[in-house]
């Protein structure tokens, strides 16, 4: 079972020995980000291959959001070795639609060239919202708004699609539907995807590779080679392993994590 996982665990980013991908779309080397005395990202190396689906796990304050903002080009990266593609798009946890523009204009926001409305309409049909082109965003449900946000990202045909906990605010049923939708869109368009999440199940269900970020470093990664849909067999053990990376190294901090209590019981 372990052999099928293609398991690679890294104790620190310095030990990065992953097989280099041919011409990665994202390439970070020794990336560091500080806010005053706090180091948020600490010497991080990251390659993302074209069309790869990556899940980034981490607790609050692990640097997930900072890393995503860097990849999205929202923060300046002066003098750092950071390569990201120009064509990239983000889906945020809150859909962030402009309430004063009807749905199709939100999707078309900033698009250049002609036939903008047709392109927007096609993208909305792809996410199953062809009937809500002229609706006002504030009249949409949470799931619908998030599908519009997906359409708005995809209409740009990005090489890199960044998803920032996009389904965290949705109910479970809607979340599963959105997983299927994201996977089918990914298969159709083949962008590289990085999904930031704190839901281990979500990471296992979606990704080719799961990265665990802690204190600004990638402390572990798992490559999953089992096809999606047949992962229920491995998900239990993988889940435990990922959770131990997430919560295991927390000794000495204010909150007592789950793991030491379990150890004590043994």
């Amino acid at each position: 079972m372990d052999a099928r996982l293609g398991f690679t665990a890294l104790q620190s980013a310095a030990g990065h020995s992953d097989i280099p991908h041919p011409e990665p779309v994202v390439r970070l080397r020794d990336f560091t980000r500080r806010f005053g005395p706090n180091t948020i990202i600490d010497g991080l190396d990251l390659d993302i291959a074209p069309g790869e689906f990556i899940a980034l796990l981490g607790r609050s304050g692990s640097g997930k959001t900072t890393l995503l903002r860097t990849l999205a080009g929202l923060d300046e990266v002066r003098g750092q070795d950071v390569e990201v593609p120009d064509s990239r798009a983000v889906v945020f946890q809150d859909a962030r639609l402009l309430p004063w523009k009807p749905v199709w204009k939100n999707v078309a926001l900033g698009l250049k060239g002609d036939r903008v409305r047709d392109r927007s309409e096609a993208a909305l049909k792809e996410v199953g919202l062809g009937h809500r082109l002229d609706a006002w965003p504030l009249t949409l449900s949470g799931g619908e708004a998030q599908r519009v946000a997906l359409a708005r990202a995809l209409v740009r045909e990005p090489k890199l699609l960044l998803l920032d906990e996009p389904f965290a605010a949705l109910d479970a049923l809607t979340r599963y539907r959105m997983h299927d939708l994201v996977l089918s869109l990914w298969r159709a368009h083949r962008p590289a995807v990085l999904i930031v999440t704190h839901d281990v199940e979500e990471a296992i269900a979606l990704a080719d590779r799961v990265l665990v970020l802690d204190k600004g470093r990638i402390v572990a990664q798992e490559r999953i080679t089992v096809p999606r849909g047949e992962r229920s067999a491995i998900s239990g053990r993988l889940r435990e392993k990922l959770l131990s990376y997430l919560g295991g190294e927390d000794h000495g901090e204010g909150v007592v994590p789950f793991a030491p209590i379990a150890e004590a019981a043994e």
Partner: peptide, 11 residues
């Protein structure tokens, strides 16, 4: 947050 979103789409 809306401004960030607009920035991320290259406006």
């Amino acid at each position: 947050r809306l401004l960030d979103a607009a920035k991320s789409f290259g406006l």
